[in-house]
Each structure stands twice: as C-alpha cells, then as structure tokens.
C-alpha cells in the first residue's frame, strides 16, 4: 500500500464529516427541543454552537483544498474529496437553519404556544434520522441506503404541508395568533429545507459510490 499519508488524511476528513454531521444533528434536535419546551437558554446555546459549525466547515474545506492541491487525487479519491466539499457546505447550511429555529425561540420569548407542538418535533426527528442515515451511507459508500434516506424527504414535505394547513386555520380563526403562527411556519420551513439539504448529501453519496450525478429531490406539487 502506497500513499499512506494521503490515505490517513482522507480518512481523517471523513471522520470530521461524521463529527460535523453529528454536531448538526444535535443542533437540530436542540433547537426544536428548545422550541417545544420554551427554553431560551438552550436556544442561545444552539445559536452559539453554530459559530463552531461554521468554523469547522471552513477547516474541513481548507484541508480538502490542501489535499487537492498537493496530492492530485484521481477517480474515487477525487469523487470523495469533491463530495466532502459539497457535504461540508450542506452541513453548514443545515446548521444555519437550526440556528434560525433557535433564534425564533428567543424571539418568541415566554409567550404561550398557540397549539401543542406535535408535527414539528416529528419533522425534526425525521430530519435527524435522514441525516444520520445519509452520513453513515457516505462512510459505507452505500448508494442504496443514500437513496432510501433521500426518499424520506417526502414524509418531511408532507408534515410541512400539514403544519402549514393547520397554522393557516388557526390564523383564520384568530388573527391574534398570526405572529407566532408565522414563526412556527418559519421553523417548519427551516426543517423542510434541512431535509432538502440532506438529499443533497445523499446525491453526493451516490456520486462517490457509483460515479453518477443523480437528482434525488425531484420537484413536487405541494408547498415548500
């Protein structure tokens, strides 16, 4: 086996993708937990943690660029490195959406919830599951698992549509709920966007595993 140092750094970068994915998953869970339990302190921590995610994304990018510049990777190595660059960007954007949800919690203050939250936490669980599956498919180079993870985006979209419909009804019945209902719509939209970004990660996994660029997030008829 030659190119040991290259191989080691490539594996280390993959490890960092896993770690960054875990941090993003925690941010999503934390933000939605803070929303459900009205915990502005937790929301604050999630928002702050996003700076760390942003910094780690740049570090990951720098290390990828260093390998591209110095090692001239080819074939599957090239696919993995360009995939990591894309995945790092997608993870960073997911982190931004999670922080956005956390900031809504801070903005909403201690105002009581207009409705018990059921579907938004379900969306969050689904999104984090998708993300975990996508990242583990990346590590295992498992295109089939990536396609399965991406397919769950439809469930997230359906929940998002349901949340929208429900909030519309509440707003029509009682216009005083409009401000908070709008915030909740933003939260739902943020989660829906995260799921879309997970499908991007899944596309990269398929590219790494099979060398083909495949659209795993076809446009659909609903909201979002």
């Amino acid at each position: 086996m030659v190119r040991e140092a290259f191989e080691r750094e490539l594996r280390a970068l993959e490890g960092e993708v896993v770690a960054l994915g875990t941090a993003v998953g925690e941010a999503v869970r934390g933000a939605v937990h803070a929303l459900r339990t009205r915990d502005p302190d937790l929301a604050e921590r999630v928002d702050l943690a996003d700076d760390d995610i942003n910094r780690r994304r740049f570090e990951l990018e720098e290390r990828c660029l260093a390998l591209l510049a110095t090692q001239q990777p080819m074939a599957s190595d090239l696919r993995v490195l360009t995939a990591i660059l894309h995945i790092a960007t997608d993870l960073e954007r997911m982190g931004d959406h999670a922080a956005g949800v956390a900031r809504l919690v801070i903005r909403m203050g201690d105002e009581p919830l207009i409705k018990p939250l059921v579907d938004i936490p379900r969306m969050a669980e689904l999104v984090v599951t998708m993300l975990d599956e996508a990242i583990s498919a990346f590590v295992r180079r498992d295109a089939a698992a990536a396609r399965r993870a991406a397919a769950r985006d439809d469930e997230v979209d359906a929940l998002h549509d349901q949340v929208h419909r429900e909030l519309f009804l509440i707003m029509i019945q009682d216009p005083s709920t409009i401000t908070q209902a709008t915030y909740l719509m933003w939260a739902s939209h943020g989660l829906e966007r995260i799921a879309d970004l997970v499908t991007n990660v899944c596309e990269r996994v398929v590219f790494v595993a099979e060398g083909i660029l495949e659209d795993l997030n076809q446009p659909r008829g609903g909201l979002g």
């Binding site: 030659v2 190119r3 990777p73 080819m74 074939a75």
Partner: peptide
C-alpha cells in the same frame, strides 16, 4: 477514465494505490 474508471486495476493505478 480519470473520474470514474470502470476497472478496479485502473482505479488502483490512477489513485496511486498500486503495489
């Protein structure tokens, strides 16, 4: 050939993992 070689021997050679 340089982005998605079909043969594993090509892959091994162009990624520098030969021998």
């Amino acid at each position: 050939v340089f982005t998605r070689p079909k043969d594993s021997r090509t892959e091994a050679y162009i990624t520098g993992r030969f021998g």
